[in-house]
Design a protein around this nucleic acid. Structure first.
Lengths: 202, 202
DNA sequence: TGTACATCAGTGAACGCGCGTTCACTGATGTAC
DNA sequence: TGTACATCAGTGAACGCGCGTTCACTGATGTAC
């Protein structure tokens, strides 16, 4: 972004193969779905032999896990920004749900890898941590609505699940949502979060 | 179920290879996830050569599409039963959401194939129809809560999405839901559906 | 009841493909002196 | 500034694998007469 032309590779040979592979993987998943990624094709797109990735990643799954970790971090960053728009917990939760849907729409490949690639998170500590940190960001918000810790967790979980469901429906075009504008789905998410939070005593 | 021992094959050679293959595919997806199904392995489990399936299905995707269609029909059947428990729309929607989660937990392979196998529904008319029929079953319920057709559809969509999200979280063990009892998740789904329906004027 | 025949479910061998991963290697880079 | 050397990112060839799909075939079944 900073230099006008293609930036000079500075490293030994390729320069930044690691990121080039991650980028290629993202493209592949965007085009072919969460299982459309292969190391061979990613290598080809990075202009490198099929053996080269093994200098940067232990195996195919490790590359995917790194992207999934990035997915959680991107979520956290977006949700953090969404919370800043208001001091009211209901506004904040509505804003969170809206941002959840927007993330899935704007970063479909990242969303797919993070949630639909079938990674076993237990093998990747960093991935699990990144996921926990998303929850840690949001828990204080729901705690302001309900003092009991278990109730707070329950509330957050149900709001996140509702947002997730809308994101999945949008991604898959279920219920005719393929043609729907993103803003409409964001609005659905915001209203749903508000309804769940308001009905928290049910 | 009717005969005590393994029922005699009655057809030409295998007897019921078609269903044996569908059953094997279901097992495979249950064990390995929505992309773990291969025609070759399903053939092996049915005790048949790898070429045999082509006498019953056009290709791999057609077999999957048939199972996805069964998934929608199983949903419809379960949701239909769930609606019968009460005449109150709020009860019915809570019951629907609960049944949604139960379906995902009790028929994980069917759930995965129907929603996470990445089928392009457009190629399979029966599949699309089966999906529509699920919505058709539920629309009358939400219509009783809101006269406007668009509002009714919006409400149903948001409740279904919330249930779907909870089902996915449960399936993937997100938010520590792996250890949770099914009844707890059903309860979350029911309360969430109620909250969304009650807050329908938001 | 017996025979000739058409049907068609399942066989077995083969195809081409793309994949993940390994291996000994090479040659550009950076560093120590 | 120049030279010798260690490092290590990327190569290219190969491996074994399992897959989806095709093909000519076989042989049990059901049917017509």
């Amino acid at each position: 972004m900073s230099s006008p032309v293609k930036p000079r590779p500075v490293g030994h040979h390729h320069g930044d193969l690691r990121n080039a592979l991650l980028q290629a993987a993202l493209e592949l998943v965007g085009e072919r779905g969460p299982h459309g990624f292969t190391l061979a094709e990613a290598s080809r797109r990075a202009g490198v032999s099929v053996a080269a990735p093994y200098k940067h990643f232990a195996d195919r799954e490790a590359l995917l896990a790194e992207l999934a970790t990035r997915g959680y971090r991107e979520q956290r960053s977006r949700f953090s920004a969404a919370l800043g728009g208001s001091a009211d917990p209901l506004d904040q939760l509505a804003s969170f749900a809206s941002a959840y849907v927007r993330f899935a729409a704007e970063e479909p490949a990242l969303f797919d890898i993070t949630f639909n690639a079938g990674l076993d998170k237990s093998g990747f500590a960093e991935l699990a941590t990144a996921g926990d940190e998303v929850a840690d960001l949001l828990l204080p918000v729901v705690r302001r609505l309900t003092p009991d810790e278990a109730d707070a967790f329950d509330l957050l979980l149900r709001i996140a699940a509702a947002a997730h469901g809308l994101a999945v429906f949008l991604r898959q075009g279920l219920f005719g949502m393929g043609n729907q504008a993103l803003a409409d789905t964001e609005d659905k998410a915001a209203r749903t979060a508000r309804a769940i939070a308001r009905g928290r005593d049910i």
